[in-house]
Design a protein around this nucleic acid. Sequence first.
DNA 1: AATGAATGAGTATTCATTCAT
DNA 2: GATGAATGAATACTCATTCAT
Lengths: 192, 192, 192, 192
Amino acid sequence: MSKEKIIHAAIEVFSENGYHRASMDEIALRAQVAKGTLYYNFPSKSQLFKTVVKAGFEDIMRRTEADLNAPLPLEEMIFRIIRHHLDLFLESRHFAHIVFNEISNGIEQDVLDELKQLRREHLNFLAKILEEGKCEQNLLRDLDANLAAASIVGTMESACNYYLSHQDEYSRQDLEHFIFTVITKGLFISID
Amino acid sequence: MSKEKIIHAAIEVFSENGYHRASMDEIALRAQVAKGTLYYNFPSKSQLFKTVVKAGFEDIMRRTEADLNAPLPLEEMIFRIIRHHLDLFLESRHFAHIVFNEISNGIEQDVLDELKQLRREHLNFLAKILEEGKCEQNLLRDLDANLAAASIVGTMESACNYYLSHQDEYSRQDLEHFIFTVITKGLFISID
Amino acid sequence: MSKEKIIHAAIEVFSENGYHRASMDEIALRAQVAKGTLYYNFPSKSQLFKTVVKAGFEDIMRRTEADLNAPLPLEEMIFRIIRHHLDLFLESRHFAHIVFNEISNGIEQDVLDELKQLRREHLNFLAKILEEGKCEQNLLRDLDANLAAASIVGTMESACNYYLSHQDEYSRQDLEHFIFTVITKGLFISID
Amino acid sequence: MSKEKIIHAAIEVFSENGYHRASMDEIALRAQVAKGTLYYNFPSKSQLFKTVVKAGFEDIMRRTEADLNAPLPLEEMIFRIIRHHLDLFLESRHFAHIVFNEISNGIEQDVLDELKQLRREHLNFLAKILEEGKCEQNLLRDLDANLAAASIVGTMESACNYYLSHQDEYSRQDLEHFIFTVITKGLFISID
DNA sequence: AATGAATGAGTATTCATTCAT
DNA sequence: GATGAATGAATACTCATTCAT
């Protein structure tokens, strides 16, 4: 009961403030529990943070996976991956920033390691989808799947970030289309 | 004299710890000046941070520009842009992370605005290079140049990040080649 | 428990040093609580100060009021007002100085406003007593009651101050008598 | 040259901020001299403050004295004393507050002693005028002249203070008249 | 299971003062 | 006479964490 309220509040507060600016007081306040209850349920701030980030990664992976159940052409799969990640990046902008970036130095080493591991798993998740597509459909260049996954995420994040401060100039559809094109076909006109 | 020592130390400390974990005490210690000297030269932590970030952006832009002086084919230009940014991302990993990412919530609004402006200028700088290439050489897809610039940066950052924790698996040349390919040609084998 | 210890210590420290020279460290030390406990109980130095000043004003008003319960001739009322204020001014010299004077510029505007309001209330308290006396007994000149209250306080303060550095020359009774005479009859021999 | 500029600036800054909030930086800035110049001319902040307060007391005494040269009836003398002090209290409100009140605990003991001595001299100055009037004209009650002087100053200060926050309700003439009446005749209608 | 008062190490910032030039 | 860069002790305030209840 308390645990869920706390996680919920923590997502909000970490998202709005980043790890260091977020305070346990604020989280307790938002969760409507006493500060002590935080420490009754989570041993430390960084462990609470890890729980939140983990939930974020699991959520995006679960949501993506659910939508890729049926066998689909690779293009469609990539399009759906992009769409699901954009949902997260655009709707929970700050939370996404945290999940994907705020893995900062001020966190205890062991928690930091776990966070890095979570990020690696997410990349592996994407990389595996690409690998399967590569084998089955012979559409993908012979590039390292993990690096490819990383570059997909990087492109999405960076483009979303730009989009978010220039929403008047583009529609969400423009953004999706741009990202899909850039990821699949690159910037250049066929110089294969 | 002091000013330079401080900036130098600040780059180190901010790079190693990020904005919030970095302490003015530590910076003073590393710069071998008294704490008061920091405040004699910079009005606040956030202003010092801005100075450092600004120097970073100016450095990467200056270095890139210097290498693009002569008229070059677009491919070569992009390749050089990538190489220069990789130099920064790989050699001064943490510094690059700060310059490109740590534009976080706990900074006074006015400094934050200036930082965002700096980031915008850097994107414009890259976008202009792309625009010129697009016009002259008709090689680029008709994509928004700013979004394209953003996606280039995002790709580089994310790939470098992955590379840095898997250096045993790739060479720097592999990385450069991967990024260049992904950016120019995308992941798919010619589905134009 | 802590709260009371803190207020008690704060009265001492503010009294001895004035607002600006008083340090939160010193207050914590005297209250025998950790520095954090100060901020757990009071949001800021100025709020703590306000609490102390408020307590002072309330104390002097309560004590005075308690002694004016029964209907008394105006002269007697004024005499008692003087006596109670002298008790405060002489016994808690520094505290009184703070309560009545240290409403200085270096305090946040909102707290400053509250302090001024407290001072106004105290003057109103005295003015009302004078007003009632004026109506009922037709003894008082037709002077503005608030200004009259202000001048009573000013006279008491200034005379006490002088008295305190010249205690060998006067008795407390001399002082009381002097103040009463000056306030009621003025310096001149009947020039009505 | 510098010395005068500094004193001038110091009067302003001390007046606006009180002793503790006033900073040597601000004074140097206003005086348009380097900070070192302050210390070239005055050994310390408190000495500079003393100089300023001394100037203030000397000024009010000189101005008052100049206007009491000719032999005048006591009433007129008191009236003029009030008027000159009101000029100071009302026109240079903060400066007056400093000169007459801000003799606070955070100042080195020896400077503090000198400041108290200055205040005593001012009271003596007023007391002497009263004494002379008492002897010559047999108008004054047989009250201690120093206490009387103190109570005059206290009345003026306190009434001015009240007046300054209620300027819409009274004219300066009202104030002068009130103070004169209260000081000479007291609050009561002849109960001699 | 939950609380919230209490803690104290840590942080940014201020400012009177010094001193080499 | 005058400067201003440099100092460092002092200060208000924050916040993750603890623990008795």
